[in-house]
Design a protein around this nucleic acid. Structure first.
Length: 309
DNA sequence: CGTCGAGCCTGAAGGC
DNA sequence: TGCCTTCAGGCTCGAC
């Protein structure tokens, strides 16, 4: 399931495949819910005729920044506002636009020739000039492929970027000391820290030797430093390995072979996640699985001492 | 404020 | 072998 390292992998693939500079000439929406509340017609109108300027990651989102509409198209439409859609300003042809893609459980993006055979799991396809297509592949249909005029509209609520230089122990300490929550759901709260999901949260807590049910206020400065370092370490390792792929199915962050791309290889580096019953790599104690905030949670009962309730 | 449960989906895994 | 049930998982919303 895509978390920060997997989304970084998606962005790297798109850039390597030459997405920047691509001009969108049209598209197809194969699963309506993937584009949210917007109609297919409005959605395609808003992206067509624009050029991809930049692709980057923010939290677990892929952001694709688009140019204003081509000058030839602007002269045709005269830069007139397209009006207000359900009370929302939809922008003009002269405005830039941004596509934000949230992969949720199983979403991925890939760039390919229009001739590449489809898998049946594509939900949105944008056609690019020169016979290429940008495809949103999402077997579980949970992901979202949204367009907005405001480049921050879909990422404004996100908290600190854990790999940015401003994610210091002091910043993490401030996040922890002001709430009375269990540490695991707090770390996964995208409003506070952007990009951690179930896998990397379990791995970071194990690395820092902190039990997932500890109250955030009980974590002292020494542990906070360990936790910050652990978060950065597991994310960087995940990125270096091209992300994590689990299982053999359609939701394992693997693309069909024909699409090429980076093969994720971080699964061999996991210490506790989905290793219930296996020995802890540090002390040999059997890894346990519990449910915390409705999430499967894996930890070492010896390295990660439970809180005294 | 924090927690919990439902809903969105479908492939995989387990039961029989 | 094959049918049927259950489960996982990010995020949002509503209830308490």
């Amino acid at each position: 399931m895509p978390e920060l390292p997997e989304v970084t992998t998606i962005v790297t693939e798109l850039i390597d495949a030459g997405i920047v500079g691509g001009r969108i000439t049209g598209g197809t929406v194969l699963w309506k819910r993937s584009i949210g509340d917007e109609s297919e017609r409005d959605f395609l109108t808003r992206v067509t005729g624009r050029t991809i300027l930049e692709t980057r990651r923010r939290g677990k989102n892929v952001l694709i920044h688009l140019s204003p509409r081509d000058s030839s198209e602007i002269s045709r439409c005269d830069g007139v506002p397209r009006g207000v859609d359900d009370g929302r300003h939809t922008g003009t042809d002269a405005d830039p636009a941004t596509i934000s893609v949230h992969p949720r459980m199983s979403g991925r993006l890939y760039l390919c020739s229009a001739a590449t055979v489809r898998t049946g799991y594509e939900r949105v396809i944008l056609t690019l000039a020169g016979g290429r297509e940008l495809r949103f592949y999402d077997p579980r249909k949970f992901g979202r492929f949204l367009v907005s005029i405001d480049p921050d509209e879909h990422v404004r609520h996100l908290g600190v970027e854990p790999l940015a230089t401003d994610f210091t122990p002091e910043v993490l300490h401030e996040i922890l000391r002001h709430r009375q929550r269990r540490i695991k759901p707090l770390l996964m709260d995208q409003h506070l820290i952007a990009g951690l999901g179930n896998i990397y949260t379990d791995e970071a807590l194990w690395t820092a030797r902190i039990h997932p049910e500890r109250r955030s206020t009980s974590i002292d400065m020494e542990e906070t430093v360990r936790l910050r370092d652990a978060i950065v370490h597991v994310l960087q390792q995940g990125i270096a390995n091209g992300g994590t792929s689990l299982g053999t199915g359609k939701s394992n962050f693997l693309l069909p072979e024909a699409t090429g791309g980076i093969v994720p290889n971080n699964q061999g580096c996991l210490s506790v996640f989905q290793r219930t019953g296996s020995p802890c790599p540090r002390c040999g104690t059997v890894i346990m699985r519990i449910v915390v905030a409705q999430r499967a949670t894996h930890f070492c009962p010896r390295c990660q001492v439970p809180p005294i309730v």
